[in-house]
Design a protein around this nucleic acid. Structure first.
Lengths: 147, 147
DNA sequence: TATAATCCTTCCCATGGTGGGAAGGTCAAG
DNA sequence: CTTGACCTTCCCACCATGGGAAGGATTATA
């Protein structure tokens, strides 16, 4: 199987397969004489696992751990469970942040008549006061690093 | 006011203030003879507005529009409302994606005894089948571009 | 078999917001 | 006049992903 074929079989783009190899998430593929990457059926399993893990929101770092646990037949299921629970907690933290934004926005929207007039509680409600101690909460708690 | 002072007054880091100037979200600041940036009280309002918008999850592009609407005293509030509603829809889409992940993960976790034994439904449940037509859904629907 | 189409390779670049830090200039307080 | 706290610009890193160019390999069709 070459990289295009395993890409279709696994649902992982060729770009990402090469990237995963580069960052050592997966082992370097064997090569043909003309340096084409060659894959086996078990590589398909690995990439499907990776695809599934990504779809569940695990980071590359977490996937490294997951793959190690996956391949370790003597792993303790409690280790896997702990990782999964940690990830769930993170997802819930992010969901809560999003929900807080949504709630505030909906509140503003509900108070905006939304017609041709310029008066708008949304615009007026966006500005945010700074804490008294001037202690600037890092903006990174916006959306960028949220998920 | 120099950049450090307005940073404290607005809750936007000096790094980000310079960045916002560079990408033309805000107008270039006037400079002292020694090329220090100088700010006025109205700049504080602008940056607090930006800070609030970021905290509500608006992107820089959306903020450009919001700032234009903010400064346009003859804007129609319906324009603002439409932007806000679009953003709410996006946030809800993201929340739904996160919730789907959480739901799946919780289901897997609930079926994992999580003891010293290697048997683990989480590991077994991660791998994801590919659609029959081999049509690979773009992985970008993972978490990276989700929020 | 010749040629075209489709693949593969590597390499560099862009994204979006944010922070880190270096090298050097400036300003204010002691 | 020194010291420390600021400011300036410039480059780098993050994370995961895609785009595309330049050139070689393979495959399919005429």
């Amino acid at each position: 199987m070459n990289i295009g074929e395993i890409s279709k079989a696994s649902g992982v783009s060729t770009k990402m397969i090469r990237y995963y190899e580069q960052i050592e998430l997966i082992a370097p593929a064997r090569r043909t004489e003309s340096s084409y990457r060659m894959y086996s059926d078990s590589d398909v399993h690995t990439l499907r696992f990776i695809r599934g893990a990504r779809d569940l929101g695990f980071s590359v770092e977490q996937m490294k751990t997951l793959l190690a646990l996956w391949k370790d037949r003597s792993r303790a299921s409690s280790d896997v469970k702990a990782l999964a629970l940690g990830h769930i907690a993170e997802l819930e933290r992010k969901a809560a942040a999003i929900e807080a934004m949504t709630k505030t926005l909906k509140h503003l929207v509900n108070n905006c008549h939304g017609d041709g007039r310029p008066d708008c509680p949304i615009i007026d409600g966006i500005s945010k006061p700074v804490a008294d101690d001037g202690h600037t909460l890092p903006s990174k708690f916006g959306l960028t690093h949220l998920v």
